[in-house]
Amino acid sequence: MTPGDAAGGHAAAGSAAADPRPGHVLVLACGERSRGDDAAALVAAEQLLARADEAGARFGVQIRLVGQLEPDDLAGVGPEVRVVVLDAVRGVPPGAIIHRPLADLASSGPGPRSSHVLPLRDVLALVAVLRGALPEGSFVGLGGESFELGAALSPAVRQVLPAYVEAIRQEIDRLGAGSAPGGGWAPA
């Protein structure tokens, strides 16, 4: 499984609430708009943001469009904040929705080292070393078909996008419910 391409790095930032507080959920969407299905997570996050006034007000969910995940995106996250990282994925069927604990994606051994950026697995592993542990959370990915420059979302990804958004929403629910006392959402 391979989170997909981000030739351009960070996209615009967006937010549904103030900084995440204990019991809240931080959503970090990765991707590059100009590269076909690599925009899938950004588009899904924007659809979530469209409902964010309600979700943010009720639940304190924060959604950030980060493009390329960087250590800073996770370094300051408090121990009780849950994190959901979104990205397009290569190596699985187009349209497949992937769930993984964040810790499973962190690199644990030697591997390729980019000359220019830190890949997702390295960012997660580095944050784990520097913080002592990764924030609790999960990766929700969507299998992409085409990552060509200038391409739009592929039909396979467009078709499954509503289901992907719903899968993210459910993951936010699951993490938020699990983190708040009594099994409910912590109010913003």
């Binding site: 499984m1 989170p3 981000a6 990765c30 390329q68 591997g111 890949p119 997702l120 990552f147």
Partner: peptide
């Protein structure tokens, strides 16, 4: 091949 999970192609 040097391969792994990155955000690049």
């Amino acid at each position: 091949r040097v391969e792994g999970i990155t955000r690049v192609e």
